[in-house]
Each structure stands twice: as structure tokens, then as C-alpha cells.
């Protein structure tokens, strides 16, 4: 059984990723975040908490570094001798980058995290045994572990609050890893509707919670292989290609004026999130 299976589908089993010749089809979910538009208001983070049933761990556990914010706003300060340090504040919304070649996937002993057909980095809660190797190997450290049994913790979810939980999203018990899913529950619903109508998901038909709640519209999300999508257009305009660890535009000697970049691109995780660099005062 298995030897014949091996021989028949050999080329399929030796297929590596990402490659030009066989991109994701018909979906490849991707994002781009305009840091120039980001005001650091944290609305995305709160929307994410609400949408994805993320436990609010409380002050004490937060101090222990056990917070669960799938979407976090990182603050960096430019210490260049300004009168008010706050003026130099920069924000970076950080969530799972849904890498095309995710370092977390190879190291999971039980294969609880995989690359899906539509280009997501999935996390199978039921399969996770909690070895936390994925987190150790994640360069972005965007994976969050359930250190306690939050669903049964009255301080985290008082009984009356259970009505507030999103029924489309499971609550995670103690001992499993979780992370941003690109609101996979919304994607699945949209795909299912589209399929029943015999088409693919249209641009704008599905939004992630963070995108939906961003007051400045800094986040755009969509199907990267759909030429009509905003994400596709942005990536193309910025000349960022998903399967490259070094973009052609950066190889030019004088560098590039374009703002698009991906974090840790040179480590070859091939992230699906492109950031648009903030326009600096010095550059204006």
C-alpha cells in the first residue's frame, strides 16, 4: 500500500514550497499593513480578543508575561534627542505572519501545525500536546500558550460572560498553543458561500476582525492570487514577491524608494504579511 503510493505520487511528495511554478490556487490569504496609517490605537487587538475568544489573563499573569494577545501593538521609541520622546513613537501591529515556509511547522512533534491549501499556517488544537517547540522556533514569537485552563477560570471568563463568546470559534483548554488564524472561521464561511454559488470569494467579501476595526484602514487583507484584490495590487505596487528571500528591488545599488518590506525575509520563512514602512520625517 504505502510503497506503491510512494512510487506513484513521488513528485508530489518531493514538492517544496514556496515556488513560482505552483502557487496557491485559488486562494492565498495575505495581508499588508501600512505603518504610516497605524496610530497604535489597539482597536485591532481588542477586536481580535472579541472575535477569537482570547482569554484576558489579568494583571498578575500579564506581569508574568503570560498574556495571549494574538494581535499585539508593539511600541518602539526613536531616541534621537527629541523634546518629547512620545513624538518618536512608532507602532507595529504584530500577529502570526502565516509564513509560506514556517519554522514552527517542521519542529512540531505531532504535526499539529501545518500549511493549508489556502496558504495559512494552521494550528490544530486537538492535536497539540504542548511541547512549545513551535514557539521556541518562531522568529516573531507570535504563538501563545495556554498556561492555565482559562475557560474554567472565573477570573478570566465569569459565567455570565460566556454569552459573549463567539460561537464560531472554539475556546482553548490548558496546555495547547494558539495564535492568529487570519480569522479562519470567517474565511471558511465565505469560501463555503462562494463555493455554493460556484465562484471564488470576491474582494471585500471577507474581512479579518483587525482589518474591520482599524479606524485608519491601515490593514488590508485578501486573496493574493486574485489580481482584483487590494492586497495583490499593493504587493505588486511595492514589488514584493512572496517566494523571494531577497526582493529584486532591493538588489539595486541605490536601494528602493518603495516602502513595502517583510520582517525577517532573509531568514526565509516567506511571511504572508507585508508592512509598508512609515514615511519618516527625515525623508519628507
Amino acid at each position: 500500500m504505502s510503497v506503491s503510493n510512494l512510487l506513484e505520487n513521488w513528485s508530489q511528495f518531493r514538492h517544496t514550497h514556496p515556488v513560482d511554478d505552483k502557487p496557491h490556487d485559488p486562494y492565498k490569504w495575505a495581508m499588508s499593513i501600512d505603518l504610516d496609517a497605524c496610530t497604535g490605537c489597539n482597536a485591532c487587538s481588542i477586536a481580535c480578543y472579541a472575535e477569537n475568544n482570547i482569554p484576558v489573563v489579568g494583571k498578575e499573569r500579564f506581569q508574568h508575561g503570560q498574556q495571549m494577545h494574538w494581535m499585539r501593538i508593539e511600541r518602539y521609541w526613536d531616541e534621537d534627542g527629541r523634546e518629547f520622546a512620545d513624538q518618536g513613537a512608532q507602532f507595529l501591529p504584530m500577529m502570526c505572519q502565516q509564513c509560506e515556509a514556517a519554522p514552527c511547522e517542521t519542529v512540531c512533534p505531532v504535526a499539529a501545525t501545518n500549511h493549508t491549501a489556502d496558504g495559512l499556517n494552521s494550528q490544530v488544537y486537538n492535536r497539540c500536546v504542548g511541547s512549545r517547540y513551535c514557539s521556541a522556533n518562531c522568529p516573531f514569537k507570535v504563538r501563545y500558550f495556554n498556561w492555565y485552563d482559562y475557560p474554567t477560570d472565573d477570573a478570566v471568563w465569569p459565567a455570565e460572560m460566556s454569552q459573549q463568546l463567539n460561537p464560531d470559534v472554539t475556546v482553548r483548554s490548558k496546555g495547547v498553543m494558539e495564535k492568529c488564524t487570519f480569522c479562519v472561521q470567517r474565511l471558511t464561511a465565505a469560501k463555503s458561500v462562494a463555493k455554493s454559488e460556484g465562484r471564488i470569494v470576491r474582494e471585500g467579501e471577507v474581512q479579518t476582525a483587525c482589518q474591520q476595526s482599524c479606524p485608519t484602514g491601515a490593514i488590508s487583507f485578501g486573496n493574493l492570487v486574485n489580481p482584483e484584490s487590494r492586497v495583490h495590487k499593493q504587493w505588486q505596487a511595492q514589488q514584493v514577491e512572496i517566494d523571494k528571500d531577497k526582493q529584486t528591488k532591493d538588489e539595486k545599488e541605490e536601494g528602493s524608494e518603495l516602502r513595502g518590506y517583510r520582517i525577517f525575509e532573509d531568514m526565509r520563512p516567506y511571511p504572508s504579511v507585508m508592512y509598508l514602512e512609515r514615511v519618516r520625517e527625515s525623508a519628507v
Partner: peptide, 9 residues
């Protein structure tokens, strides 16, 4: 839960 070991992200 593993949290009592004071591990974190």
C-alpha cells in the same frame, strides 16, 4: 497548568 512554572511567551 504549566503557568505555575512561571514560564511565559
Amino acid at each position: 497548568g504549566m503557568g505555575v512554572a512561571n514560564l511565559n511567551n
